[in-house]
Simulated scan of single mutants.
Amino acid sequence: MNKFVWPALMALLFVQSPAHAINEKYRQQLEQSGCTQMTELQGCDIHKSKAENAKAGFADPYTPAAAAGSAKEQTPYAGQWTAKSDTGATVATIRIDAKEHVWVNGKEVKAKRTDGALQFRQGTLLFTIQGDRRLKNEDVWMDTDAGTKGPIQSE
C-alpha cells in the first residue's frame, strides 16, 4: 500500500499549483472603483469611478473621512464651550476648531482623543468632552487637586 501512496502523494504535490483569488485586471478594477470584494457583493459597481461609488454609498471603510472627500463633515468637538462650577460660575472658556486645536481661556493646550472623548489639561484642571453628542451630561471638568468637578456646556 505504501508503494502506491507515497508516489501518488509526491505526484500530487508537484502537480498542485498555487491558487490566486483574483487576477490582475480584476484587482485594478477594484482599486479604480474603490470597491472591495465584499462591497461588490452588496452592489458596488467596479465599472464606475471611486467618486460615483462613494456617492452611491460605497465608500471604503478603511479610508479616513477627511481623505474620502467629506470635507463638510465637522468634528463633534468644534465650537465654544463653557466649564461651569456647581454655583454656575464660569471656570473656563474653551474654544475648539475644526482640526481639534484647543484653547482654554485663550491659551492653546494639547488635546488627545481617548475612548471617544477629547481630553485636555490646563494646570490641575482636566477637561473631557464626549464625541457622541447623544450622550448628555458627559462633558465634564475636574480639578485633580481640589477634587471638584462640574459640567461643560456648549454655547
Rank of each mutant, 00 (worst) to 15 (best):
C44A: 08
F14S: 13
A67Q: 14
D45H: 00
A56T: 07
I129T: 06
V109C: 00
K55N: 12
R133G: 01
V102P: 00
L13A: 13
Q16T: 14
A8Y: 06
N53R: 06
A117D: 14
D132E: 11
T39L: 00
Y62T: 13
T39E: 04
A111G: 15
F58C: 01
E52P: 03
P7Q: 12
G131W: 02
T82M: 11
Q74L: 07
G116R: 14
R113V: 10
L13N: 10
Y77T: 04
N105A: 07
Q130W: 06
D97Y: 02
S85M: 02
E100A: 10
D97F: 05
Q122Y: 05
D132M: 03
S33Q: 09
N53S: 06
G57T: 05
D132W: 05
L9F: 12
A65P: 02
T63K: 09
Q130C: 08
L125I: 00
G57M: 08
W6G: 03
L41M: 14
A71R: 15
D45V: 03
Q80S: 13
M10N: 10
Q37D: 11
A92Y: 01
L41T: 05
D86A: 15
Y77K: 04
T82Y: 01
I96N: 00
Q80Y: 06
F14V: 15
A117T: 07
E52H: 10
R121S: 04
A59W: 00
S49P: 10
Y26T: 11
G88W: 07
L41I: 07
P61L: 08
G34F: 03
N105R: 10
E73P: 00
I129G: 01
T82C: 04
